[in-house]
Write a protein that binds this DNA or RNA. Structure first.
Lengths: 179, 179
DNA sequence: CCAACCATGTAAGCTGTTACATGATTGA
DNA sequence: TCAATCATGTAACAGCTTACATGGTTGG
């Protein structure tokens, strides 16, 4: 089952802490989370769909009667299945933010080994993509670039170099101590 | 008239050099351009729409009878109108790639003053956004972040710092010499 | 001659956007 | 009491993706 990033984000947030639809919207509005927006027209239909798929369910808090969304066990399984995917070159090339979303929600698994594996695959994919970008700049097409084109590419490359620096800094935080 | 980024990209490419629909698709496939894809199902309908709007027109090369798309004067005007927009905080926060697309096609205007103004607004927007991110990390919500959340934010911040470094490097290239 | 590539399109379906709509609660 | 915010939705529409479909050209 393939879901949209928004759906994964909703399940992940519901696992982290059951919330109402409105509270979920607020998260997208007030935190720099991926920047899914967050209009009622996107969130509520998405939530309804996730409930229909039995990945989320509505529940009430004990004391108050406030309704909130909670992940079902199927929902957790589906999310986990997504979380343990390693990062592909394609993802890095055209939608890095999704890899970062994945990283953020890896927290719900609370398993440093899986996080570590994720980061390794992220590092690999970023390195490969950078290699491809360098290759492009050397290629015939790359050499034809104007000042603007070259600068735009430099910007992109700098971004990926940043990701690389970041992952090298993040990796040791999840390293398993060798016996 | 508000167009999609893909449409602006198509017009920009057609201005840089008239091309067939197929050639336009190839650009998206073979260069790291924004990563618009590039399936026939997106390009051809978009081109048809631009022709209907009289922003592009089909033309034939003198010698061969190969058909290609060329920008109309309206098309150039619409693109220019988009290009001279300054970069907003919203754009930077949720769709920086679009600002970079804009930068790339500013080349078609061949006007260092406009490019310079664009870069200044970009720098401003990025600085402001960074300030907001820093503020968030200090806020109550920011302090609540887990290791994963904090790292994901660090990644985002590093990215914007990269943009800032980049723009400071790019700006002087378009500075007008003072008399 | 046949595979690869040039070249252009259409149709179904899903997502998300924008805009509209409604009503309850709460704090100044 | 009145504005803001909580809270949930719907409807129209635009856009992109995937998949299907077709046919010409060219080089090995």
């Amino acid at each position: 089952m393939k879901l949209t990033p928004l759906s994964y984000a909703l399940i992940g947030l519901a696992i982290a802490e059951p919330r109402s639809g409105y509270a979920l919207r607020k998260v997208f509005e007030t935190t720099p989370l991926g920047s899914y927006s967050s209009s009622p027209g996107s969130i509520y239909p998405a939530l309804a769909k996730l409930v229909a798929l039995d990945l989320l369910k509505k529940s009430s808090t004990l004391d108050s009667n406030k309704m909130q969304f909670e992940a079902t066990s199927t929902g957790r399984a589906i999310l986990k299945n997504w979380l343990i995917q390693s990062v592909s070159l394609d993802t890095v090339a055209s939608e890095v933010e999704i890899a970062l979303l994945q990283f953020a929600f890896l927290e719900t698994l609370d398993d440093p080994i899986i996080t570590y594996a994720f980061l390794v695959s992220f590092e690999q994919a970023v390195s490969q993509h950078l290699k491809n970008l360098y290759t492009f700049t050397q290629s015939a097409d790359g050499q034809k670039l104007s000042t603007h084109g070259r600068l735009a590419m430099e910007n992109g490359i700098a971004g990926y170099e940043g990701h690389l620096t970041w992952v090298k800094h993040a990796l040791p935080m999840f390293a398993t101590p060798t016996k």
